[in-house]
Computed example of a mutant assay.
Amino acid sequence: MSQPSSESATTGCSALIRPADNGFRVLAALAADKHGRGNRLIGLHLTMVLIMACLVQAMLLRDRHCWWRGAERMDLPRIA
């Protein structure tokens, strides 16, 4: 039997995690850590920053979608 190479194992894993996601993952981990250790003020602040970052990404996706389709102002998809 042949052993799988370490290169194929690492490339498969790294292909699943995009570099843009790392900031969100770190922020979510920090917020969960602060909440878990009882520091609610910092934990809630980090959670609000994470929510704000998600809303910014949603606005960017909406703008990209509208630019790509050439949609008119009334044709804009609703976020919520």
Rank of each mutant, 00 (worst) to 15 (best):
residue 41 L to V: 14
residue 11 T to Y: 12
residue 19 P to A: 03
residue 61 L to D: 07
residue 11 T to F: 13
residue 25 R to T: 09
residue 67 W to P: 00
residue 31 A to K: 03
residue 4 P to Y: 09
residue 19 P to H: 09
residue 69 R to S: 04
residue 67 W to R: 11
residue 16 L to D: 03
residue 1 M to H: 13
residue 43 G to Q: 05
residue 10 T to A: 13
residue 29 A to V: 08
residue 70 G to T: 03
residue 31 A to P: 00
residue 68 W to E: 03
residue 18 R to M: 06
residue 15 A to G: 05
residue 67 W to N: 06
residue 47 T to E: 06
residue 25 R to H: 07
residue 2 S to G: 09
residue 77 P to L: 10
residue 61 L to I: 08
residue 66 C to V: 10
residue 62 R to A: 08
residue 62 R to M: 01
residue 80 A to C: 05
residue 18 R to H: 13
residue 51 I to S: 15
residue 22 N to W: 07
residue 58 A to V: 10
residue 69 R to M: 06
residue 37 R to T: 09
residue 45 H to M: 10
residue 14 S to T: 14
residue 50 L to T: 07
residue 36 G to A: 00
residue 75 D to C: 03
residue 40 R to T: 00
residue 76 L to K: 12
residue 14 S to N: 11
residue 37 R to A: 11
residue 36 G to K: 00
residue 12 G to Y: 05
residue 18 R to D: 03
residue 60 L to P: 01
residue 75 D to N: 11
residue 45 H to L: 11
residue 44 L to W: 09
residue 37 R to E: 06
residue 74 M to C: 04
residue 76 L to F: 09
residue 72 E to C: 07
residue 31 A to D: 03
residue 64 R to V: 03
residue 38 G to L: 02
residue 67 W to M: 06
residue 74 M to A: 11
residue 12 G to K: 14
residue 38 G to Q: 00
residue 4 P to N: 09
residue 57 Q to G: 09
residue 60 L to I: 11
residue 74 M to I: 04
residue 34 K to M: 12
residue 42 I to G: 01
residue 19 P to I: 01
residue 78 R to C: 04
residue 29 A to H: 13
residue 20 A to M: 04
residue 53 A to I: 07
residue 37 R to P: 00
residue 58 A to M: 14
residue 47 T to L: 12
residue 45 H to A: 12
residue 23 G to H: 08
residue 11 T to A: 14
residue 47 T to R: 13
residue 77 P to W: 02
residue 72 E to R: 15
residue 47 T to N: 07
residue 24 F to P: 01
residue 24 F to S: 06
residue 75 D to M: 08
residue 46 L to W: 10
residue 78 R to K: 12
residue 40 R to N: 03
residue 69 R to H: 08
residue 56 V to G: 02
residue 71 A to Y: 05
residue 26 V to P: 01
residue 3 Q to G: 06
residue 35 H to D: 03
residue 3 Q to E: 09
residue 13 C to D: 04
residue 7 E to A: 15
residue 54 C to D: 06
residue 31 A to V: 02
residue 48 M to T: 12
residue 45 H to V: 08
residue 42 I to R: 12
residue 16 L to P: 00
residue 19 P to L: 06
residue 11 T to V: 14
residue 51 I to D: 11
residue 7 E to K: 15
residue 13 C to G: 05
residue 57 Q to L: 14
residue 70 G to D: 02
residue 38 G to P: 05
residue 5 S to E: 06
residue 80 A to H: 10
residue 71 A to N: 01
